[in-house]
Design a protein around this nucleic acid. Sequence first.
RNA 1: GCGCCAAUAGCUCAGUUGGAUAGAGCAACGGAUUUCUAAUCCGUAGGUCAGGGGUUCGAAUCCCUUUUGGCGUGCCA
Length: 550
Amino acid sequence: MIKQKIFSDLKKILKELKLKYDKNFQIEIPHNPEHGDFSTNLALINAKKNRIKPRTMAERIKKILIKKRDYSKVEIAGPGFINLTLANGVYHRALKKAIKQDSRFGSSRHGRLKKVLLEFISANPTGPLNVVSARAAAYGDSLARIMKFVGYKVFKEFYVNDAGNQVDILAESLELRYREIHGDVMEEFPPEAYHGEYIKELAHQLNSIDGSKLIHFTEKDRLDRMKNFALREIHKMQMNSLEKFDVEFDNWMSEKKLRKEGILEEALSYLAEENCTYEKDEAVWFNSSEYGDVKDRVLIKADGNPTYLVPDIAYHITKYNRGFEVMIDVLGPDHHAHVSKLKAAIRALKLDESMLEIVYLQHINLIQAGEIVKMSKRAGKIVTLDDLVAEVGKDAARYFFIDRRPSSHLDFDLELAKKKSNENPVYYVQYAHARINSILKKARKEKITLKNFQTKHLRKLRLSAEISLIKKILDLPNVLNAAADKREPHRLPNYVHELAGMFHKYYAKYKIVSPDHYELSQCRLYLISAVKNVIAISLDLMGISAPKKM
RNA sequence: GCGCCAAUAGCUCAGUUGGAUAGAGCAACGGAUUUCUAAUCCGUAGGUCAGGGGUUCGAAUCCCUUUUGGCGUGCCA
């Protein structure tokens, strides 16, 4: 908001002075407060164009700028930075606007209603969601919330691999457990089968419905029944887990359904039309190496079944056909190879590759008592999303997952997340919110309210702590825009943690409610209400509760 | 071998896209509570931004290279 104002002020001056300039000069907030509220490299970048020294150029701009009421201080520093300090009134007016917007503060049309398909988690429907999915869930959902808030049109989709090899193995695993119930005990459970306890539970559930009658079915019918039952139950299980995690999808895209619609064949025929396929060793290949892949890939196996690549290409074609402008795939780090194949296909089909963005979430380690918790899917020893939520709570889990850059590995300290103490950053932020609530309560008790507040009194807010807080509040829209555009929701917890810190310090140093200074108290209440509002908005966008009391 | 990702304080991580003296939290040490919530605050200490080279007014950030770690490199998904 303010930055834009400065930007246009500067441009006006440049035109007035008939100076040449490149529009992409920057206005930024310096680390060092002595360098003013804002700083621009305008003269540094554009001096050459005008054949003068940066400092000379800066001086000329300064002369005009300093006459304006909104700028209380203009300084030239270093090689030619222009450091600007704004008058408090600028901040007071901006604060007023922010308060007016209430819970919509920070929202905008920034994304221009761009249609975005955000695919995340897309875990196999062969078991409960694990912690890897949990990171994806927190990341994807928060990103979606933020993007929507700043004006993107986001459609959240979960791709369900409910067809193919893995699902067959699932059915067979269930069958083995079912047979166990009926006395057919194996010496050793096959290593490739799913070992988790949940398969046993499913077998018991199935048995309580169907009893022993499945034994007399033909093998195909029995396995079909097993498969459908398992898929339905596991799907319910996953949806349930996500619901508890406050994650909702607009669509669960079933691979089985896609296959029924014949789009696999369609995809294959498109590739064939582009002369991208050939036969070798009784298999059908895709000449993906012509399109940037390291080698060619098999599309149809010698046994006549498609590889997983085919439905995936087909699925992505549907993404293009459904009219999205941006498609974001959130994937684990073990999908690099997968992406090079997929991108090869997209190139081959002459689809716009730049519309497809891949975000890789790096692995996470769970840390317990200083040790990495070892997990093995095969042995059924995994920590599930449900376990995690039960253990540390939704709020802490989501916070910890979003708090890290997507591309960085994440060590999730279970004990830290559980601690209800100052070591835990989640509570630090929530506590600030709760604390403000209690101050507001106290103010009501003292009969100090904002009902008859006249904003002209805002000039009483002139402590540097107060102006800094206002600046921080006003930064929310920028943080959200950047988080959305960069697909980096971690910027939000970072930001709100800093805001909470500034508030806690302010609180410790200054009395907010003091009946002897009625108007000043009002001003401060006004200010901390805005802080509270920003914290509430931020937490909501992270899917974390904002408690009134702790 | 090749490809992708990473390396910043003892630990976990930020670093506003190339800006000025690299920041938080935790852990360590010392302090603050008859108070609007101490789940808080104040102070001390902690760094060859993995190493080297390059690009320029200016590099943790961009390029090259070396080292270390994770992952990938299936007619598995």
